[in-house]
Amino acid sequence: MANAKQEALELVFKQPTFVSKVFSQKTILNTISVVSVFVVWALLVHFQVYRFSLLPSPAEVLEWGREWVTTKVFWIDTGMTTARVLVGVTAAYVIGIPLGLMIGWKKVFSDLSFPMLEILRPIPAPAYLPIAILLLPWQEASVAFIPFIDALFPVLLNTIIGVKLIDRDYFRAAQCLGSSPRQIFWHVVLPGALPSISSGCAIGMGIGWMGAVVGEMITGKWGLGYRIWESYILLRYPLIIDGMIAIGILGFASSKLIRYLTIRLVPWRKAITESLDESITK
């Protein structure tokens, strides 16, 4: 009797049905959560609570957005912002990762570069804008400097932490097996730090978008950030929100893409990458 009961019990647990999955507490609550944002927004606008009367309703935003997407301006703006983010963030990767690896690995490098970095790090990226304009006088390029600065420090610090967290025994094992410093770099330092580097890259990408928007709002003539600012000045409020949504989607997608690519590079420590992410990102 007992056995039969247990077998039945196992079977029940083995197959969660489609219906139970869809109507689980979690999915229901999640749906409520997402839908309620729009509902509350629409209601606040509709009943003109406080200054919400100034805000466009979700329907308006959708309508303007649909139109905006078909215009050429939208695609130029999107391309412009994306290009800046990509240039800036890639530059941050190219400089940040090797520098971080060397700083984390060799004490000499860390001594030589850390004081400077510690001085430069607390300066918020927008404050670099005047210098960026001096260095890269053509306006559209100078904006790319902000995502670069924004992304550089997360990438650099994550790389350094990644190297520092490598177990000392790996280095000793590699030395015992007769590795040259160069082999140690390629076979211990780089792969060992990869999980941390990958999360640094994802964070850098996320913050890079913020940097590009800041730069464009302050001194751009093109780009999604500038378009938001222009819509504000021209009182085209629905476009402001459309611009925010467009940036949000692009930033989210690019972060996810980087994470996906880098996790493929480090299949052996997926779990750790994810947990590190959560502790280091916002």
Binding site: S33, R51, L55, M217, Y237, I247, G248
Partner: peptide
């Protein structure tokens, strides 16, 4: 329960850079 109820809407808003909120805050 609160996590399931609140977290998804946060996830939806978070990717928008805070700077992009400036025009709306001015409103």
């Amino acid at each position: 329960i609160l996590n399931h109820l609140i977290f998804p809407s946060f996830e939806m808003v978070r990717p928008i850079p805070p700077i992009a909120w400036i025009p709306l805050t001015v409103l």
